[in-house]
Design a binder for these strands. Structure first.
Lengths: 341, 341
DNA sequence: TTGAAAGCGCTAACAT
DNA sequence: ATGTTAGCGCTTTCAA
């Protein structure tokens, strides 16, 4: 692989001249510039990013730390981060921590050793204290979709507005005419969704009674069982908000098994908009998380930090949006009692 | 950030001594070693990977080039590649080409500039000629899951044995007692799957007649329409092999709409084992692609090349496996005519 | 308009 | 057991 020095020697000029010719700067005759450029192309000269980084103290690399890319929530985000970074000539190192603090530290160490220009940390993929350490020592950092109720001071951050997500779900169901609403929620991780939902009902004069709140653990199965519990009670809901799509699908399955029809007998709304949601029967109405948007904001925030054009650091919130499909509709008998099982 | 030189000066010794102390090699008194290690820890010394790479001509970085990580086929693979690479102290640069040859070239250029130790290229994410160029000039390369019928000479390669996948599907359905089999296939991309299927039927004395072969384009919708076409004919199949899960799900949907029950009236088998497959109703029997395995073999093959312990280069094939769920069973009336619609 | 020289942080061959 | 030196490929003063 030819170096600047090689070219200089072959052309009988100095390194400086070659460097200037290559980057189109500096003062030199058009003739020598042409000659050099020509030769450089011939030998397939390719600048050495390592050497450049060493002097420039800049690598055009960012680290993307996340629990695991195998979790379907992340790939779209990863794609968008890589895309935007690429537009600015940055490349992205993929770091799965599997939520192991030690592995997280190892990755962070490696990234520091490589002089990455910054990092984006998603989910609760690693120990905040470690991130804090590095951030304090000057590593540009963005926390993305960090744990709902935990917000480390000082580190720029962008998340989904989950409170509004809950509110949107409630608004949609209320607008359809539902009055007996239930929620399946993964507490205490997803409290904000519950709060947004509850508050919106309250504004409409409705109380979310404790038996209408069922816990799940974000899995399909937990949604299934939560729905069965709801239907085993005296009073049945006419609509269920599951705080993620997997649980919503589980709830739909339970509903089918009981011989009820969705959305005629029960409306179900989820949250996330995973791929399956659109292809399930019936296609699931859901509160969609704008993953691309989240990724874009996070990446831009990081690049701003890196390039020093960073402004305010108060946590940014990206709004979710309602995606109406076919699992919700007006209730059949708004005031009727629950159908017998 | 402290450097070796800084430490040497502070300790009143030479760089060499510090370097030796840090890497636990060379001859030096236990005393000075301790002293140096102690101090290094105090100031939080972290070796500079760039400088090291520059002298060693080794970056412990590999590039992972793929169409897009947003395609659900890749995340699990990416995770496994990163995991194995990590075990060997390598990090992974994520490069989505979106199947744009120009973008692919740009990525490859950047990777070369960074002196990555090698690359893994998946799918048909970029122009083979470009890969060939770099490979020929010494860049360790592995082609993974490359186009079925295209096999660039010389470049180490690992793929799925799709012929066997088709054979497995046929074996399973034959073993259940099916005799009227149909296939929905994305031709000519997936010819191997068709061939494996057809050949196995032939061994059993069955001919796959042209009307039992329906084209799809890998989407759910195309599977749906292909199934409708099959059912609009005189003779109905008792089992369908769709060469990917999305088409299988589309076929199942069409079957439901016609009032037929799966697997009682029709068996359906897919290929891939995407996440949805397990959660559909009924859970889809499928030929599972061992993504982890594929990723592991590819990564190990690359590391062997990099470390020079590379052996034979004939294309490796990873065998798929049959995953029996609930969309296949013995046919109701093996010899009966098709049920009326 | 062009060149010489120092330095980024590290490794390694060769002294002492 | 420790030190000197040169060099990886590039950028960046400062001179000519």
């Amino acid at each position: 692989m030819a170096t600047i020095y090689d070219i200089a020697r072959a052309m009988g000029v100095s390194q400086t001249t070659v460097a200037n010719a290559l980057k189109g700067k500096g003062n030199l005759s058009a003739a020598t510039r042409e000659r050099i450029l020509q030769y450089a192309k011939e030998v397939g000269y390719r600048p050495n990013a390592l050497a450049r980084s060493l002097t420039q103290r800049k690598t055009f690399t960012i680290g993307f730390i996340l629990p695991t890319i195998a979790n379907p929530f992340y790939p779209e985000i990863a794609e968008e981060i890589e895309r935007i970074a690429g537009q600015h000539n940055y490349q992205v190192l993929l770091c799965n921590t599997h939520c192991d603090a030690k592995l997280g530290r190892l990755h962070l160490d490696r990234l520091e050793s490589r002089w990455v220009d910054g990092i984006i940390v998603m989910g609760i993929s690693m120990d905040v204290a470690d991130i804090q350490d590095h951030f304090t020592q000057g590593l540009p950092t963005v926390l993305c979709d960090w744990q709902e109720n935990e917000s480390p001071q000082g580190i720029p951050q962008v998340s989904i507005d989950f409170y509004q997500a809950g509110a949107l779900a409630a608004h949609h169901l209320l607008a359809l005419g539902h009055r007996r609403l239930a929620i399946i929620v993964d507490e205490p991780l997803q409290t904000l969704r519950l709060e947004g939902f509850r508050a919106t009902l309250q504004e409409a004069g409705l109380i979310l009674s404790p038996e209408m709140i069922q816990r799940g653990d974000s899995t399909l199965e937990s949604g299934y069982h939560a729905a069965r519990r709801l239907f085993s009670q005296e009073v049945h809901p006419t609509a269920i908000f599951a705080t993620n799509d997997w649980m919503a699908i589980g709830a739909m399955r339970a509903t089918h098994e009981l011989g009820l029809h969705i959305p005629r007998d029960l409306s179900v709304i989820g949250l996330d908009d995973i791929v399956v949601a659109a292809h399930y029967q019936p296609p699931l109405t859901t509160i969609a998380i704008p993953k691309q948007r989240l990724a874009r904001v996070a990446t831009e925030l990081l690049l701003q930090q890196i390039e020093g054009t960073h402004e305010a650091a108060h946590p940014l919130l990206v709004p979710p949006s309602l995606l109406i499909r076919q699992s919700t509709s007006t209730p059949l008998h708004t005031d009727a009692l629950s159908p017998e099982l």
